[in-house]
């Protein structure tokens, strides 16, 4: 049974998976971009600037999703001391910080023509900035603390404590007055985004998710190589 989980085997499977996912990513991204930039209608109020949403919203979703995953894994790490989970969350973080940055930058670009400002210190935007800082701290903790036991502990603590920020981001637009508009899509209510605009949004989210999986697999293999170079047979 444990034969299936030996690092060498995982490395080989990962390498094959990467090629398949890379192909899927390019395919889905092309369809998504054509839908988002050309086929979808413009908004009645915002005209063409609504197209920034098809990058902004998926990026924000993915960045929140990845941080929640890292936090959940870190809790398991803290309780069960499973080292493999650390490798997984460590490999997830780079695409998470990338998408947080994309969400902030595209939000800024979107804010200028619609709201009339690049930046506002409202609750949603500020809490997203806090998320960016948390990601940075999380990634840095692996670099700063050379001792593995120590870096594992500190990084999981950052992720667990940082998880409190996730509900704050999500509900900031409901709890306080913000410049940012409230959520358009919820699980219980009808979407406030017209279906013709929902199609590119869903496809772009799939494309970004595939991209994060791709980066994750690459990072994970890098970690496996590092372990091999240290001459360790197991984690």
């Amino acid at each position: 049974m444990f034969e299936y989980f030996n690092p060498y085997r995982i490395f080989k499977i990962n390498s094959i998976l990467q090629k398949i996912i890379f192909f899927c990513f390019i395919l889905v991204l092309s369809i998504g971009l054509v839908e988002a930039l050309f086929l979808s209608p413009e908004d009645y109020l915002q005209k063409d600037s609504v197209r920034i949403m098809y990058v902004h919203v998926p990026a924000a979703w993915i960045s929140l999703g990845i941080f929640s995953t890292i936090a959940f894994l870190s809790i398991s790490v803290f309780i069960f001391k499973n080292k493999n989970l650390i490798l997984i969350s460590k490999s997830l973080a780079p695409s998470g910080i990338l998408f947080t940055l994309i969400a902030l930058v595209t939000g800024s670009i979107w804010g200028k023509p619609t709201w009339g400002t690049w930046w506002a210190w409202d609750a949603r935007i500020t809490s997203m900035l806090v998320l960016l800082i948390l990601y940075a701290l999380y990634l840095l903790s692996f670099r700063i603390f050379k001792d593995q036991v120590r870096s594992n502990k500190i990084s999981s603590m950052i992720a667990i404590f940082g998880a409190i920020n996730i509900p704050v981001i999500k509900f900031s637009v409901d709890w306080w007055n913000t410049l940012h508009q409230p959520a358009s899509i919820s699980l219980t209510e009808k979407s406030a985004i017209h279906s013709s605009m929902l199609v590119p949004l869903v496809i772009m989210t799939a494309a970004f998710a595939l991209f994060s999986v791709l980066i994750f697999l690459m990072k994970y293999n890098t970690e496996l190589i590092k372990i091999k170079n240290k001459g360790l047979k197991r984690l």
Binding site: P41, E42, Q46, V50, L179, A183, A192, I193, M197
Partner: peptide
């Protein structure tokens, strides 16, 4: 002054 738009998005025809 800053414009604050709502969460509704739809094509002009709709």
């Amino acid at each position: 002054i800053l414009a604050k738009h709502d969460e509704n998005y739809m094509p002009p025809e709709v």
